[in-house]
Design a binder for these strands. Sequence first.
DNA 1: GAATTTCTGTTGAATTTTCAACAAAAGGAG
DNA 2: CTCCTTTTGTTGAAAATTCAACAGAAATTC
Lengths: 219, 219
Amino acid sequence: MKKYFTILRKCPLFDSINDNDLTALLSCLGARVNAFDKKYTIFSEGSPARYVGILLSGSAQIIKTDYYGNRSIVSAISPSELIGEAYSCAGAESIPVSIVANEPSEIMIIECERILHSCSNSCSFHQQMIFNLMRNLAVKNIMLHKKIDVTSKRSTREKLMTYLMIEAEKQGSSRFSIPFDRQELADYLEVDRSGLSAEISKLREMGVIKSNKKQFELL
Amino acid sequence: MKKYFTILRKCPLFDSINDNDLTALLSCLGARVNAFDKKYTIFSEGSPARYVGILLSGSAQIIKTDYYGNRSIVSAISPSELIGEAYSCAGAESIPVSIVANEPSEIMIIECERILHSCSNSCSFHQQMIFNLMRNLAVKNIMLHKKIDVTSKRSTREKLMTYLMIEAEKQGSSRFSIPFDRQELADYLEVDRSGLSAEISKLREMGVIKSNKKQFELL
DNA sequence: GAATTTCTGTTGAATTTTCAACAAAAGGAG
DNA sequence: CTCCTTTTGTTGAAAATTCAACAGAAATTC
């Protein structure tokens, strides 16, 4: 497990827990690591919400398909992020979304119960992890509010610009790359792909943005 | 404070904490109660995110106004619900939304720090409240996902039907009333009010729903 | 209870988005 | 390197949403 420590240290679940304790903690939690190839489903819609995942390498997307078959991308996941914790922490029966690897990826999987309830060894980290989960969920709440800010906009242009500004802020630069291709960006913004392409072209002509494939710059 | 106990008992922050302890706990937390008239702002956008609110009576709405001046309603709040906890728990500088009383309302206000950090009396409830906050934030996460399900839909009709189905499920009946008038519902669904009215009329003619003002029934 | 204000539903015109189809460019496989 | 697949940008037609304006209904105020 040692080779994952660089990533795990960045995972909000292990804030304020130092490396020396991590090995023991992970075995106490029964953590295991699974690998998934590109396009493979890590957690599938409808499966029990018992597990928390930590993305160790690669990238993933949270996908929702409604009963009309429309695919929408809820969010993109990068290494050290927690996955599925909202559903398992809330005690939901099953998860209503799928989580799909976007490239070959490794995931650490932990049964949520083993985080929330003290173990027989009565190791002292559960309180800290519950606090960490609380903070992480609060941060995700804010991120979901931002996603709502995006999808709430009425026009393709406003959705796109709102998303680009959030992304620029998150990455701390007016130049940044996005984790989506055009179709995926459309599925994330909930707009028509061809209309989105047209809008990007217009904004480029207007001198509002520069862009090349997944690279964007706000001017 | 005793008169608020019926409501406070339902507040997720106080799960698994019994009435006997509540009086001491509230004074330990420095809880105070404020009253607001209809249309008055309880927390205003940009103010420090230090406080958690509990709606004791009345009702409220979380309002967001973007730089174009478009009002959108993020959610409706009813008694015993927590307000603003995501921002204060995440350690945000300020809150990006306003919370407005929708009728004369009473709010209990607690400084979030006093929940998260043990007090000098070292009373034993902080761990339980942190757990409760974690669970509450997880549940709210799921609710935000549902809100995204609504605003993600492309057409007014799909947004409306998705919202009505969620509301029917939440209220446990195909007959239910919504907490919004027409303009507010439009601001919640992020659609045009007149188009929304037209859509409601059509769905009624089609025999998909019955409705009268704020009363709806799914057929 | 009369007057005023707010709320709701309708309508037609203007604007946007979606849809469908295509061609060029880019990327991957063998 | 060539062939095949995927991705991207364009375009025009169809469909839907937004906008603006209005009239009747309902609620509120004095």
